[in-house]
């Protein structure tokens, strides 16, 4: 059951049980929501972008450990980043998870050096039906960025 241990790494269970940046934002922000209709997982995101930088982020949601931990780690990872850097992170995440075709950007010799805690989600790749769980917060983020860009 090595695959299971790889899937449910300590850090994933920690983010599941103690999600970071949970809540809602007050003041100007964009809001986006995502749902996986097949399993019912829900994720929502409040994002404040000022001068091209993510200055605040808050998340809500309910669902499996993979979707919720992915959202929690994502929220931490994007805070304080400029929008192009967030987009770069999104692209790397999608490559790591095999959602986009291409070589994984992760350096196996230096764990955590490219995507930090998010690299713990690599174990999900061996469970193809669960990849959409890990991806839910990221498609929601893409939606939020698009809304911010459009000024809505």
């Amino acid at each position: 059951m090595a695959d299971l241990d790889e899937l449910y790494r300590e850090i994933i269970l920690d983010h599941y049980r103690n999600p970071r940046r949970r809540g809602t934002l007050h003041g100007p922000h964009v809001h986006a929501e995502g749902v996986n209709p097949s399993c019912g997982d829900e994720f929502a995101l409040d994002l404040r972008i000022e001068d091209g930088v993510v200055t605040d982020v808050a998340i809500q949601g309910q669902g499996c450990s993979i979707s919720q931990a992915s959202g929690s780690m994502m929220a931490e990872a994007i805070l304080g980043k400029e929008v192009p850097a967030v987009e770069d992170l999104m692209a790397k995440f999608r490559l790591m998870m095999g959602i986009d075709e291409g070589d994984s950007p992760i350096d196996p010799n230096r764990p955590g050096s490219v995507l930090g805690d998010l690299e713990a989600l690599q174990g999900v790749r061996r469970f193809p039906v669960r990849i959409k769980c890990a991806d839910l917060p990221w498609t929601t983020l893409a939606d939020a960025l698009a809304k911010a860009e459009a000024g809505t």
């Binding site: 299971l4 449910y8 669902g63 499996c64 769980c133």
Partner: peptide
């Protein structure tokens, strides 16, 4: 417990 149904189903599937 606090194990979400999808996580539980994945673990059961592995068994």
């Amino acid at each position: 417990g606090d194990i979400h149904a999808h996580d539980l189903a994945t673990i059961l599937d592995e068994h």
